[in-house]
Amino acid sequence: MTETRGHDRAASGHPVGNDSPAPASPPATGLVKGPTDLAAGLFLLVCAVLGWWFGQPLKVGTAYRMGPGYVPILLSWVMGGFGVLLCTLAFLHRGAALEKWRAKPIVLVLGSLLVFAFTIERTGLLIASTLAVAMAGLASPQQRLRQTVLLAVCLAAFACVLFPLALQLPLRIFP
């Protein structure tokens, strides 16, 4: 029994590819059989088109004398090829359903990095760290406000002692 649980974890610990069956997802109906693969393929296609488009000003040159654009354009085509392949497979093979994206952690955790980037040079490490930790802390479903605030203050103080003082990294603590 324990072994089965171990398997589950081994499987769920890593993203599931298109050739590993995903037992949890409901069977896909309609034209698109592998929604995850379709999304993956479209993502690659978009990247390839962007790479190709913004690679246009670069000189391609020849195989003998490669210009700066030779490899970028080549790679764009290869990536586009992979994109098309994945999109095609999405219509032929049954694959995993799209996983849901949770907005709250994305907004709060990424927001906390942005807040840190915005404040570190204006207010110094102490305030920047407090704000960043407090904001990131709110992302957890089990968060408790008082604990989060306390954590923010403690971690900020710890970071101020560790990085600028103990490790001598060039960081201002106060505004």
Partner: peptide, 29 residues
């Protein structure tokens, strides 16, 4: 829930102190 905010903070400081560049923190995000 107490651990990951610390990781976020350490990541921020780590990326920033590499070149003192706030843009790199934004890129990490």
């Amino acid at each position: 829930r107490l651990m990951y905010p610390a990781i976020v903070l350490f990541c921020c400081i780590g990326v920033y102190t590499l070149n003192n560049s706030t843009l790199e923190v934004v890129m990490a995000a």
